[in-house]
Write a protein that binds this DNA or RNA. Structure first.
Lengths: 133, 133
DNA sequence: CCGTATCCCTTACGATACTG
DNA sequence: CAGTATCGTAAGGGATACGG
């Protein structure tokens, strides 16, 4: 048996992202994926329309933004509100669950942004040690 | 000009992941990417050898694990320690910076795992509303 | 304005085989 | 054990055009 002391109060959860077949892995990918993370981050300031969102998430194509929003809506993280006006107006906003995810995500994003100098420095060291060979 | 009131006490950081050309976007992708996130998560318990890591991150191929580790090492998040023994032994562990990233990442991972029931429920509602059309 | 559909290219990825 | 090399497939993703 393994020393229970070592496993730091780990809950026996039904979902484990490290297991290949676990559905949580798919959701994590929606959340942390290239466009998913940025979309959730952008929406954390409040609701946005499709094209507003598209401008905030610099570089995303219509296709990928649409696809990303569908996945996040399906997972219950984003709410889509279409108003039957003309011209049409559609607002996207985070659900309560989505807000919790976005908060954690933004913590990570801001941390990475704040440490980019260290990262860039590490890269130079790595490249210097390897490129010189 | 934009109303300064709207921008909620936002620091003027030199790096902004929402900008297409910012290097922080690349690092975020290494960290949150499919295998990057799981690798960092697996290493947060302590150092692991290549094949131990491979078993923990269920489903990763040798190629992708190797590639992922190189990217994380280059960004200064993972430390590689090779011992010139025979057979060779190589240990991977998180750097202090890597530990901070992994902590935030695990917070997100555990949160998602803990809310998977809500996510799965949301999916059923979504599919029921759409599949029935 | 809000998307979907199509085309097409590039990258990611996995399987396998091989080297130190 | 710890990887690298090569190959083929599958998915990601951008551009454009078009529909509601």
């Amino acid at each position: 048996m393994d020393t229970a002391q070592e496993r730091t109060a780990e809950q026996e959860l039904p979902y484990n992202v490290f297991a290949k077949a676990c559905p949580s892995r798919g959701t994590l990918e929606h959340v942390t994926g290239r466009w998913g993370a940025l979309t959730l981050g952008a929406l954390s300031d409040g609701s946005l329309r499709f094209n507003e969102l598209r401008r905030r998430v610099d570089g995303v194509s219509e296709k990928m933004l649409s696809q990303t929003l569908h996945a996040l809506e399906r997972d219950g993280l984003v709410l889509r509100e279409a108003q039957p006006t003309n011209p049409p107006r559609v607002d996207y906003e985070l659900t309560p669950l989505g807000r919790e995810v976005a908060t954690r995500l933004l913590g990570l994003i801001h941390f990475v942004e704040g440490r980019m100098d260290d990262v860039l420095e590490a890269r130079e060291r790595y490249d210097a040690a390897r490129g010189g060979l």
